[in-house]
Amino acid sequence: MKSRMAYPYIVWLSMFIVLPLLLILYYGLTAVDGSFTLDNFQRFIDPIYLRVLWRSVELALLSTAICLVLGYPMAMIIAKTEIKRRNLMVLLFILPMWMNFLLRTYAWMTLLGRNGVINNILGWAGLPELNLLYNASAVVLGMVYNFLPFMVLPIYTVLSKMDQSYIEAAKDLGANNRKVFWKVIFPLSLPGVISGVTMVFMPAVSTFVIPRLLGGGQLMLIGNLVEQQFSYVGDWNFGSAISIVMMLFILISMALMTRFDKEQQGGVGLW
């Protein structure tokens, strides 16, 4: 009887979540005149667009890897600190999120730009000016900067909840610190690593703001491609097709990740 309380949302859900996606599907599968076609998808198989897709995946993977390498030790350090300071450190990781995302990214332009803070400092030191902005590295930096907390926090959560007796047992059985880490701590923290990886990779692969601001529009990623189709070109059909590809790509990789996670844990979900 109480299930009726969900009815308003079911209506909302159908109107604003299901229907728009169906519309996207409709546009993706039709030509401008409304006739059914697969042309939009075929157009995407063009090397130009595939290269865009590949570059997005490449940069997102690179950023994810950097986040993991930087974030894992950080998560370990936080998990080891005593409780009061630990909460403060977590808070410090969350705090930047409360500054508008675009502004934070924009601030990097101030830091990296031709007349930016870093180049000014280099100038004083008598060093040559560097071209830091408007290239792929700047985009990767922006992604790492914005998404690093997404990697640190889930890993930290898993590590801080980890039963210390596993670590003690491994030491008891003769494992030194390095072996304890690789044979016990790291495998047991995989659920956190996996959610961290997904939480960084997904927004990184679909972003269009970071490449626009820090890549200076020279760098077209798949997010920019979609935005362009809808905002400038007005080719909704092609734009919809790309959106569908992107959506499927992400949903499938998500599904694979969770599956891998479950297999690893023998069906015991920790996260």
């Binding site: 969900a6 949302y9 079911i10 859900l13 604003f16 979540i17 299901v18 229907l19 728009p20 996606l21 519309l23 996207i24 546009y27 997904m202 927004p203 692969v205 679909s206 269009f208 997010g223 979609v226 935005e227 809808f230 909704w236 734009g239 919809s240 959106s243 992107m246 959506m247 992400i250 949903l251 998500m254």
Partner: peptide
């Protein structure tokens, strides 16, 4: 069913949610 549909906006890239709503 409802929960899976509910996850769509959470898991979908924002840009997809954005253009889909705009289209609507």
């Amino acid at each position: 069913t409802i929960l899976n549909l509910n996850y769509l906006p959470v898991l979908n890239p924002d840009i997809v949610t954005g253009v889909a709503l705009m289209t609507l």
